[in-house]
Structure formats: C-alpha cells, structure tokens
Nucleic acid binder design. Structure first.
Length: 125
DNA sequence: AGTATGACTCATT
DNA sequence: AAATGAGCCATAC
C-alpha cells in the first residue's frame, strides 16, 4: 500500500490488498435490499474475518467518501440498535432513512429486527 | 513510536 | 442479568 498517513487524512482507496477489506464491506452493504438490515458481525463473518466487526464499523465511517453511495444506515449492531447514528450528518438521519424504507425504529432500536435481518452468509452464500 | 480509542462481539465472571 | 476482559486493527494524538 502507499502511505495512508501524512498529508492524506481520508482513507486512500486503491487496489491494494490492504484496502480490499473496506471495498468488500462496501460491496456487501450495497447489496442489502431496501427495508432490510444486517449487522457488523454478520458482514465480518461473511468476509471471513469474523472477529473484525470493529473494522466494519471503520469501513462505514469511511463509506461516506466513496461512490457509489453506501447505505450505511442498513448496518446496525447485533441487538438491532442504531449504534452508528451519531456518525451521520445529523443525529436523526439514520433513523429517518430507515423509517423511510419501512423499518420501524423505537428508542434507537429496530422493532422487528429479527424479521428484517438480512444475513449475507445466507443471502449471498 | 507507544498509547488510547472505537459505528463490535463473544466468553467469562 | 449485568459487568468485565479479550480479540480485533485502523486512526488519532
């Protein structure tokens, strides 16, 4: 990889092996159907790095700078809670986007989480 | 260069 | 059931 620190503050997206994990995460997230959600851990497990759920969170944090757009609001923690809402443009944006897609949210938590859960391991094989 | 901190999750108290 | 420790590893300082 080239250097990622120094003058470049934002994650550098190139074809190096180092950043392929982030790109894989974004590819999976883009395939989440509207009205469905998945979790950081499910994505990490699907990519074969089961214990790197935190890195999926970092990928979401960086997802705002890439194109095409990544529906980061469809990724929540394993309890169906909107743990990442604070990182959106406004504190309520994540919840608004989800509700606009037909997902019921109450107290920062998805109501019928189990029913709208989309598992990449099952759906993508 | 070393320490701290997470958009996490699991196992162990 | 709630708290704690441990992996994880890219960034921030």
């Amino acid at each position: 990889m080239k250097k990622s620190s120094g003058e470049n503050k934002l994650p550098v997206v190139d074809d190096s092996k180092h950043y392929s994990f982030f790109q894989n995460v974004w590819d999976v997230v883009r395939q989440i159907p509207k009205g469905r959600v998945t979790t950081y851990g499910a994505i990490a497990t699907y990519l074969g790095t089961k214990s790197s759920a935190r890195m999926v969170g970092w990928a979401m944090n960086a997802s705002f700078i890439v194109q095409p757009k990544v529906p980061a609001q469809r990724v929540v923690n394993r309890n169906g809670m909107l743990s990442g809402k604070a990182h959106f443009a406004t504190p309520t944006l994540m919840e608004e986007l989800l509700q606009k897609e037909g997902i019921q949210v109450k107290d920062e938590k998805i109501i019928n989480f189990k029913e709208v859960f989309w598992d990449p391991i099952v759906e993508l094989g």
